[in-house]
């Protein structure tokens, strides 16, 4: 049933575009309402009948993936949820994908947040998205959430030398001393990989400047799309890789599915949200092409007359 919907809407949209292209060869302008209709279809159809497009990971995304993929089993990874509910739609998908990937590879995860609002998001996403796929994972052994501490960059300045000083206990007031994950972890320098996901301040940039650089710890970042261009100057020197916006998440998810087929059955919000985006971009590009065809055919006709 779903497939029929996808096929029909694709035929409708692509067929319509081809028809318009043929019409444009006679230099006929397209009414703007037709353009509006196409945009509406291109966005609405993939929402109704979820369609995913094959993403191929770009190098910046693949570097993060490979880093996690190639860490030896049992490595310790820190994930920092540095975002608020407003930013969540864009960055939540990557947070989910990376957590799952770490679990799949048997890494231990320390979750934390530099944002006050991040702690609630963190426990929500743990219980809703991340843990359901991995019922065998045990709190304090395979993962731990140490939550939020006020202090912005100040927090980072401390945990680069001593995590316990800033976070004496985890979110459930269990002392870090008694948590197996922290047996060999004293400071951020002992971590095998840090991933900061966010888009504001403090966030990924602060992790790079206050922990990654001085502590020589590999840091990867996941950011909202508008922030992504500002992070590129740090790549590949200071950061392992960048996941930018929904597209970054989608690329990561597709790489995950390619390497670990069992993820195909889990939800992939990044890929799903790229459906309307991709179709709409294609429609806009098609109309740019049609517009140019109309323009050049029209000019030639003028010359002839």
């Amino acid at each position: 049933m779903d497939n029929i919907g996808v096929i029909i809407s694709l035929i409708l949209i692509l067929g319509g575009l081809v028809t318009l292209l043929i019409r444009s060869l006679q230099a006929r302008e397209v009414d703007r309402r037709i353009i509006f209709l196409f945009i509406f279809l291109a966005v609405a159809a993939p929402i109704l009948f979820p369609m995913t497009f094959k993403e191929k990971a770009t190098q910046v995304v693949k570097s993060v993936f490979d880093k996690i993929e190639n860490l030896p089993e049992g490595s310790t990874v820190l994930l920092s949820f540095d975002f608020d509910p407003a930013m969540a739609p864009e960055v939540q998908p990557m947070a989910n994908a990376i957590s799952r990937h770490c679990f799949e590879k048997g890494h231990k995860i320390i979750f934390m947040s530099l944002w006050a609002t991040g702690q609630a998001l963190l426990s929500h996403s743990l219980s809703e998205f991340i843990l359901p796929g991995f019922p065998e994972k045990e709190n304090l052994v395979d993962y731990v959430s140490i939550g939020y501490k006020a202090g912005n960059e100040g927090v980072l300045n401390v945990i680069i030398t001593d995590i316990q000083k800033m976070f004496p206990t985890d979110v459930n007031s269990v002392p870090l001393d008694s948590i197996p994950i922290f047996d060999n972890i004293e400071s951020c320098k002992d971590l095998d990989f840090i991933m900061s996901i966010g888009g504001g301040k403090p966030g990924p940039k602060e992790w790079v400047l206050f922990v990654g650089d001085p502590g020589d710890v590999p840091v990867g970042v996941g950011v909202a799309a508008v922030v992504a261009p500002q992070m590129y100057p740090y790549y590949p020197g200071q950061i392992v890789g960048i996941l930018g916006g929904v597209k970054g998440a989608a690329e990561y998810e597709s790489e995950l599915i390619r390497v670990h087929p069992r993820f195909a059955e889990m939800d992939t919000p990044g890929l799903r949200m790229m459906g309307p985006q991709t179709l709409a971009h294609v429609v806009i590009m098609a109309f740019i092409v049609i517009g140019n065809v109309v323009f050049f055919r029209g000019r030639r006709r003028e010359k002839k007359e």
């Binding site: 030398t161 001593d162 316990q164 000083k165 004293e186 400071s187």
Partner: peptide, 8 residues
């Protein structure tokens, strides 16, 4: 000193 933690 880092790691000792006597001074809080």
């Amino acid at each position: 000193l880092p790691g000792i933690g006597t001074v809080v």
